[in-house]
């Protein structure tokens, strides 16, 4: 009996991802009909490159949302880490790319740690801590850059290669994203700390009583988020070959929307990496495809909003039906 219920529950869970996948297939089919250029190898590559930075960030945001938190500061973190790293390579063209990446990660880690400490040690609500840090970090970016941008000609070739280079024909960005996914999958599924993140999210009190270091886990997720945002900052700057003060302004909302599209609830505890990947993919697809099918630029934002709302709505309806059916069967 119990095992049957569990099987059904798992069925419902994977059904959600399947639903999202179906939605993606449906949307792509529709777009393909409008523009046959959509499903070509070249465009799929473009699409994946485009979605890769977003999909790195959603991994971090997934963990933050799992613990019932939120992080609004990542857009600013991307800007600061990108700006500082770009200024460093502009001043010392000899810096190897790997050091730039580490530098970006360190900057993000510091910001993430501050937010993590505020949230876990001082009980500041995540939305407030990250909102405050968002302002502070954005302000710092302007102060550090002195209003200047770092332009393509100031960036040495190896630095730009971080994002434009290829291994076996596959763009570095895609490879980095895949590696991060693999690590995150292992971390969330098979390590003790990974499971503790779920535990803290689904029932903080129970987690604490059962001896899980709740504060440490919460602090950790913000540190991971910060580090990933710092990494994304370097990738962003290398990809677009320019660092400016208002880089990625408001990008945090895209990330959150993609994660929620992937079926992660903002109330913590539930959400899977596979869903989040699909969410990021769908989001990347929309921004790639809407210009392709010649939608009036004035309609794009409205359509994006409607698609997100529809996906979320379908998600809820499907979940409700599944729960109802599960209940019915149990009564029999």
């Amino acid at each position: 009996m119990l095992s049957r219920m569990r099987r059904m529950y798992q069925g419902a869970e994977s059904f959600r991802e399947l639903g999202l996948l179906g939605f993606i297939v449906l949307v792509s089919a529709g777009i393909q009909l409008r523009n046959p250029m959509f499903l070509t190898a070249g465009n799929i590559n473009t699409l994946l490159v485009h979605a890769s930075i977003l999909s790195i960030l959603v991994v971090g945001m997934l963990m933050v949302l799992l613990t019932r938190g939120i992080d609004l500061s990542i857009g600013s973190t991307i800007a600061l880490s990108g700006m500082v790293c770009a200024m460093t390579v502009a001043a010392n063209p000899g810096v190897p790319p790997i050091l730039s990446l580490l530098q970006g990660i360190m900057i993000g880690l510091i910001i993430g740690t501050i937010i993590g400490l505020l949230v876990s040690r001082f009980n500041v609500l995540p939305i407030i801590a990250s909102l405050g840090m968002m302002n502070i970090v954005r302000g710092l970016t302007y102060v550090v850059s002195g209003g200047r941008w770092v332009s393509a000609y100031q960036m040495p070739r190896p630095f730009l290669q971080i994002a434009t280079g290829r291994i076996l024909g596959v763009n570095h960005l895609i490879i980095i994203a895949v590696v991060i996914y693999l690590i995150a999958y292992y971390f969330l599924t098979y390590t003790r700390t990974g499971r503790q993140i779920y535990a803290v999210g689904s029932n903080p009190d129970a987690a604490e009583i059962s001896g899980i270091p709740k504060k440490r886990v919460i602090c950790l997720v913000y540190m991971i988020m910060g580090a990933l945002a710092g990494l994304a900052g370097v990738l962003w700057v290398a990809r677009f070959a320019s660092a400016q003060g208002n880089t990625a302004m408001g990008y945090e909302l895209n990330v959150i929307a993609a994660v929620v599209l992937g079926g992660v609830s903002l109330t913590g505890g539930s959400g899977k990496l596979s869903g989040v990947i699909l969410g990021a993919l769908l989001f990347g697809m929309l921004s790639n495809a809407l210009p392709l099918i010649d939608v009036s630029p004035f309609w794009q934002q409205a359509i994006q909003g409607v698609v997100i709302l529809t996906a979320v709505w379908i998600n809820v309806v499907v979940k409700r039906r599944n729960e109802q059916q599960a209940l019915l069967r149990r009564e029999i």
Binding site: A257, G305, I308, L309
Partner: peptide, 9 residues
């Protein structure tokens, strides 16, 4: 967040 995008849209 979704209605924010929709209304502005």
């Amino acid at each position: 967040i979704s209605t924010m995008t929709i209304y502005r849209g």
